[in-house]
Design a binder for these strands. Sequence first.
RNA 1: CGGGGUGUGGCGCAGUUGGCUAGCGCGCCGCGUUUGGGACGCGGAGGCCAGAGGUUCAAGUCCUCUCACCCCGACCA
Length: 415
Amino acid sequence: MKQSKLFTKSKKESPADEQSKNAQLLIRAGYIYKEMAGAYVFLPLGLRVISKIKAIIASEMDAVGGQEILMTALQRKELWEVTDRWSDENVDVWFKSELKGGQQLGFGWSHEEPISEMMKQYVHSYKDLPVYVYQFQTKFRNELRSKSGILRGREFVMKDMYSYSTDASEHDKFYKDVIDAYMRVFKRAGLEDYVYVTSASGGAFTEFSHEFQAISEAGEDTIYVDKSKKVAINDEVYNEKTLKDLDLNEKDLEKVASIEVGNIFDFGKMKSEQLGLTFTKEDGNTEYVHLGSYGIGVTRLMGTIVEIFNDAKGIIWPDSVAPFQVHLIGLNLDNADVLKKANDIYDVLSKSGVEVLFDDREVSAGEKFADSDLIGIPYRVVVSAKTADKVEVKRRDSIETKMLEVNELLSELKK
RNA sequence: CGGGGUGUGGCGCAGUUGGCUAGCGCGCCGCGUUUGGGACGCGGAGGCCAGAGGUUCAAGUCCUCUCACCCCGACCA
């Protein structure tokens, strides 16, 4: 993409009404636009990052047998009354509205009830199980206080998956598969050294649920991590009994702030009993389906990555989620030969499948470099009157530059 | 929802104890000079000072209410 055509512009100064690092950098660089507190627009650059993150998640969910769907954000009052979660006393984050005729409805803050109701249409026999369904969905939560940029919004994108299993052992196996799949997601998103599987308070059927906590000062959770065992405990369940149950030693634990980027939960048969989701077993008897839910905050994950990977100059995207692989900086473009060379390189890279943002704007070199650092694309490639037949290549996370032939650059990018 | 803070051109800010045509930087438009780390000169455009209601000869400035945004806390099946 040619940067001269990109309608967003970067800003030198941070917005006054944002304190969080992720919001400041993402707004300055033109990834997001703030519509109101807790609600943000994802601009061309931002949407590309979201798409990268979604693709990583989708591939890992598919790998464990997930099937993607897309539900509606509109939800029926009657359905949530069945599980007694329509009232504002029990769920205090509802956005509610009504139809012209006066019937009340809600904007989905979660989808366990509607998807499980739906699955009653498709699950009748043990032969239909297990089944794993997921979606990327906009969630609405009327938080008393949104905060920290895109880490805690009133409207956000979440990947939510639901598992339907015949019994606890079948469920447990999948549950463990998802833990591994989630860790692969976070590793691929560049957070391998930061995300810990964290034991947190469970529900009616399990002692613990599991959260995926990314170590960051921007986080609102407190966890105790055992770095050698790669596990953690949430402060909310931190006590002697828990330590013993999890075989952890107090002296190996480090107390840190963290961001909850994922959460998985075993519902047992509770919700199936409430909603009447049953199947017929091999012996002809009827049984309730065992349900699990698995969430990753997609937009929150994007914000977390920014919180962790940045410096004084801007964002430093991991390669896997960057909006583009290469930021091609054209200097001296008023020179026809240089312009042609830059355009040729842009074409060659693009045709090779490399995602390139080509800064072809008529602005000073300093401004281009500053913008490039702010936007944070992994490879900066400079073409100018000085670079002759080569290009100057620099990674955003390094200070070293090297002169490469275009085909050398291509082979490095393929690695 | 409790506490604290902030609202002044698109963005970031300054505006004395109320007092003349409301300033500065960035950005924007025009012309010229520049061209490897956010260039420079000259000339422009752009503001019911968040909103409403008071006090006063006079309100960006004082008072009351409302709204918005940020931060801390509480909350976050």
